[in-house]
């Protein structure tokens, strides 16, 4: 197996007084699509936020591309080359599509360099370039949120529930886009839609009750109905 771009070792994260993550450990091989699976409230989103330093872990270690992320503020972590597509999209609704993309530039010219790739993946964004983000459809907002993470040359993309609340045809388009962008970046995905996850990801990590309980190759999991039933409650 190729080397790991991300190593998460035994992290414990608290939100206020609540102990949300109680030992999450996994690694993400460079160039892979790895999916975090688990029930609602298992701690998947908090795991992504812990990696990015939004909810920094109190214990454990996170290493991105050889660098320990402990104590770094989230903007510094992002600058290392991590893009974040949060759940519920979190696009800036009052900003135009163009401004939503411009704000993601880390260096002048980032957007100009990546614009063709972004518009090829999501032609709708070109069509609505001057429209306020809040006026886009749900699917288009999700595309904008992903496109925003593509503006700088990120090496790792954290994508949280991209299929949430979207029609099947839009989900297909998003899956195609995620496959394309995984050619140039590693993807760590959180996804409730097991069908989508199993078709997209090479590797999986199951998070249950704040702890990672199992990980491995996606191909092995799809044949393991007992595990799917036990932790995900769906096939």
């Amino acid at each position: 197996m190729s080397e790991n771009i991300l190593e998460v070792c035994g992290i414990h994260t608290y939100i206020g007084q609540f102990h949300i993550l109680e030992g999450v450990t996994f690694s993400v091989p460079k160039g892979s699509i790895t999916v975090l699976l688990g029930r609602n409230g298992a701690g998947k989103t908090t795991t992504l936020k812990s990696i990015l330093g939004i909810t920094p872990p109190r214990e454990g270690k996170i290493v991105f591309d050889g660098q320990d992320l402990a104590g770094k503020p989230s903007f510094k972590i992002a600058q290392l080359g991590i893009g974040y597509v949060p759940e519920h999209r979190a696009i800036f609704r009052d900003l135009t599509v163009a401004e939503n993309l411009q704000i993601a530039e880390r260096r002048k010219g980032d957007l100009a360099a990546r614009q063709d790739f972004i518009f090829e993946l999501f032609p709708d964004l070109k069509k609505h370039y001057r429209l306020a983000g809040g006026k886009l459809s749900g699917g288009q907002q999700q595309m904008l949120a992903i496109a925003r993470a593509l503006v700088p040359q990120n090496r790792l993309l954290l994508i949280d529930e991209p299929s949430e609340g979207l029609a099947p045809i839009i989900i297909e388009a998003l899956m195609h886009a995620i496959r394309r962008l995984s050619e140039s970046a590693t993807v760590l995905l959180v996804e409730q839609n097991f069908r989508m996850a199993s078709r997209l990801a090479d590797r999986y990590v199951i998070v249950d009750d704040g702890a990672s309980v199992q990980s491995g190759l996606m191909a092995d999991l799809t044949n393991d109905q007992a595990t799917i039933q036990r932790y995900l409650g769906a096939a």
């Binding site: 503020p73 903007f75 992002a78 600058q79 800036f92 009052d94 900003l95 401004e99 704000i103």
Partner: peptide, 25 residues
Amino acid sequence: TRIGIIIRAGVQDSQMVEALGINVR
């Protein structure tokens, strides 16, 4: 201006602005 876009975005969601790699502080 870019700082203006950052301010307007920050008014909506400053945590997301920081997650883009911008020093919101």
